[in-house]
Simulated assay, not measured.
Amino acid sequence: MRAVVVNSSGGPEAVEVVETAVPEPGARQVRIKVAAAALNPVDAGVRAGVFGGAGERIGLGWDVAGTVDAVGTDGAWSVGDEVVALHYGTVKPLGTHAEYVVVDADAVALAPSSVDAVHAATLPLNALTAAQALDLLEPAPDRSLLVTGAAGAVGGYAVRLAAHRGVPVTGLARRSDEAFVRSLGAVRFLDGDAEDGGFDAVLDAAVLGEPALARVRDGGRYVGVIPQAEPAPVRGVRTGAVEVSADGARLAELVRLVDEGVLTTRVAETYALEDAAKAHARLDGGGVRGRLVLVP
């Protein structure tokens, strides 16, 4: 089968499409025939060597939508099930940017029925990150929440999920994105020049760090999206960062919200698997709204 890998860290030119053996599922695993797989900033980080793995062949891709085509022992899934999954791991021999991928059975959920595989592939990593970050913040209708990067993939899901719970959300993004951020349910909008602060909690999806921390009230809560990269606590503010985990049950809840029209998936552009390097170059160029998706 074909798979996207890097053999040495670097820019988009380091991305290769190679032929490799089709993986076999073990106990409590399933193999998915990939229909679509999103490209995320973490893939660019892996490609650039941010997470280590020098000298190793590393597979790229975390998100997948496709069809179960083989199951290991003790599995709850059946061949033919249309599914989505998060394949967690920064340094792994094969990722989801391939024709087939093996994942743990408990990382899998049935695919949304209301969108196609390309759109479904944009859900797992970003929506799970947003949901699990909100879990850390414990927002409530009587507490204010600021989401930075509110027009981005993680930030957009966070705004929508929090608003769906009745939390008063303020979204911080570029001024040109105000209408979109408000459409997600934000009751207030800020651009980067605004100096508003005093929020009970901040979800820093834009990875602003200290400037986002400064907007939290004394004794409030800050959560970032890059593990171990959050700023140090100040003024009694608790700081932390979400480390996303594969959770099929939680993913199933997010799928349900897609099918109910609560969450909207966003696709910027699709690329053939063999054009993975071009997709990386587009991602590095910035300004992408929605996710780039690879289609084998």
Rank of each mutant, 00 (worst) to 15 (best):
F180S: 09
P231N: 11
G286N: 12
A140T: 15
Y88G: 07
R31G: 08
V295A: 13
R291F: 02
A3C: 04
V202A: 08
R282T: 11
E56H: 11
G59F: 11
F189M: 03
K33A: 15
G66V: 11
L273G: 05
P296K: 13
E269T: 04
G11Y: 00
G53R: 07
A127F: 05
P12C: 08
K33I: 00
S114D: 05
G72A: 10
D63T: 06
N40D: 11
V17K: 05
V216C: 13
T90S: 13
A268D: 15
E210G: 00
R217T: 15
V258T: 09
T239S: 12
D69F: 09
I32D: 10
I58W: 02
Y222L: 06
A277G: 15
G66P: 13
A249N: 04
R291N: 15
V293L: 10
A232C: 03
G10T: 07
V293C: 14
A131S: 15
A120T: 11
P93M: 02
I32Q: 07
A130R: 03
T264V: 14
D191I: 01
F199W: 12
E253V: 02
S9M: 07
P139F: 12
G10S: 10
R238I: 11
S183F: 10
G287E: 06
Q132N: 14
V216D: 06
Y271P: 02
G198P: 07
D284C: 14
I226M: 15
